[in-house]
Amino acid sequence: MFHLLKIDLKKLTGYRTFWVVCGLYFVTLAFTTASGMEFLKWLAGKGAEFGQDLNINRIPLYHFPDVWQNLVYISGFFKVVLAIMVVISVTNEFTYRTARQNIIDGLSRRQFLFSKILTNGLLSLMSVAMVFFIGLVTGFIYTPEIAVSDIFTDLEFFPAYLLEVFAFLSYALMLGVLVQRSGLTIILLLLSHMIEAIVKVNIPESAGFLKDFFPMQAISNLVALPFARYAFQEIQDFVAISAVVIALGWAFLFNYFSYLKLTRADI
């Protein structure tokens, strides 16, 4: 297994685009998630101009355990950057025809796909580690009274986030394998949410429950929007089992479709 991961990483670590995109991803992810208080200050300043008084100290954005869901939710928006990197990595294999050469050299088609899936897993894990680290640091900085039990509350959002990123990267990998052209694949990837929304709008009211089964919706359902709680609204502050099951199902299907395509086509 590590052997396959090593093969794919060898391809990527010599590729400057990979470093640039991943660098941008982790830097923007870190800065955005860490600068929530600055954003609140800016918001308060704007509010003051309009005579609105916003007491930012009453918004526990970075307090344990709120910080976990808040950061995980925001981080979810950035996964598309990683997904684009995955698309570039896999479509390169087809445009340079290196996938073909890899197989000629003695990789099986399944191993080729597996090496890509392993990289997806690694990137997802790194994202989780990054967000956890920032959450931990900011939590310790901003939480007025730290209770150990609070730190360990709501950690279930991390496995959910891992699944969210991994499922989306699996989707990107599948698109890349099916379309094989980087430009077209990236456009499709970016439009996925919109295309799905158009389909969902046309679903009759009576079949509304189906909406949760759509792939993009299923991935978003893993972590619900937390910020409404600061406007005294009820939020879903847990990970729903049904959402996990559906997202797991999609992650499996995405990779399975890639597998079908790769094993049956002439490369």
Partner: peptide, 21 residues
């Protein structure tokens, strides 16, 4: 010839060696 254009000749061959064991 099919190789990763952004890798050096040496790196490309290392990759081949890795795949072939």
């Amino acid at each position: 010839p099919i190789f990763y254009p952004y890798l050096s000749g040496q790196k490309n061959l290392e990759l081949n060696a890795l795949i072939k064991g």
